[in-house]
């Protein structure tokens, strides 16, 4: 029974046309669209289809992928004009109610070749906001005496943002990035918020100097497309609005966030570091 259904899953059910953007900036004068027809089954993802085309039809097709299970964030593309991870989008899902699936490289990323974009400036912006925990207690860091413990409330403040894959879907969807190539972008800003509200972090003012600039967090106007397309439900738009609130609170000298209650008694007597 079990075997029967898994065989069903891989039985070809439909022939779908894939319209793929082909462009090599070093050689071609302008991009071309190429069409490939491929038999798909219920479980075929777009990534499976692309790999099959590369193996069987056209070995010159280029795209980037790694894990194939929505954990690495390499394979984000425009599927029918919307940013998606192709490894977790099935072809039949994308071809629903239309006769072809259109694949383009991500908007707002320079094209390297075909479907692969250049992420250099995206990663530079991520690095610019110092995505690591900044500590001032050098004595403790050199001679550690214990762990840095957190309550569940403190953990809940930033957990949602730690899921980010750096896939670039949000950066590509943001209308501000479409013209403003200096804008830090939703991914970097959400990560900045993630580190700023971490109870172990001391780098609040250091990061505010970077974020509160001409092309920092105030260029976000809450179009919320970043949250709309994020494949890991990180919700960067929420992080950015909370970041703005945090910066304004800091401006008036208010505590950035309420100090949480004592650590749960289960951990026992814990020294807060």
């Amino acid at each position: 029974m079990m075997e029967q259904s898994s065989i069903d899953l891989w039985k070809p059910v439909k022939v779908v046309k894939l319209k793929i953007y082909r462009y090599n900036p070093k050689k071609d004068f302008s991009p071309k669209w190429k069409e490939y027809e491929i038999e798909v089954s219920r479980g075929t993802t777009i990534l499976d289809a692309l790999i099959r085309i590369k193996e069987e039809v056209d070995p010159s097709l280029s795209f980037r992928y790694s894990c194939g299970q929505a954990l690495c964030g390499s394979c984000a593309m425009m599927v029918n004009g919307r940013q998606m991870l192709v490894c977790r989008t099935r072809v039949l899902e994308a071809a629903h109610n239309r006769d072809f699936v259109e694949l383009r490289p991500l908007d707002n990323f320079p094209v390297i070749r075909d479907l692969a974009g250049d992420f250099t400036s995206f990663f530079e912006k991520h690095r610019a906001i110092k995505p690591w925990i900044i500590r001032r207690d050098f004595e403790e860091l050199d001679n550690p005496t214990g762990e840095y413990k957190q309550t569940i409330e403190e953990y809940a403040r930033y957990y949602q943002f730690t899921d980010c894959l750096k896939c670039g879907a949000c950066y590509s969807a943001c209308p501000t990035v479409a013209t403003d190539h200096e804008y830090l972008g939703p991914q970097a800003l959400a990560q900045a918020y993630r580190y700023m509200v971490d109870s172990r972090d001391d780098g609040l003012d250091e990061r505010i100097a970077i974020l509160d600039s001409d092309h920092g967090c105030w260029r976000c106007h809450f179009a919320a497309s970043c949250s709309d397309v994020c494949p890991k439900y990180v919700d960067p738009a929420q992080g950015i609005q909370l970041l703005k609130k945090l910066i304004v609170r800091r401006k008036f000298g208010l505590k950035p966030h309420r100090p949480s209650d004592a650590l749960p008694s289960k951990i026992g007597e814990v020294k807060r570091r």
């Binding site: 013209t179 403003d180 190539h181 200096e182 804008y183 092309h215």
Partner: peptide, 14 residues
């Protein structure tokens, strides 16, 4: 100003 600096983001123009 916001619209213009989003349109011309280079530092000197800003």
């Amino acid at each position: 100003r916001v619209i213009l600096i989003e349109l011309v983001p280079d530092m000197c123009w800003t």
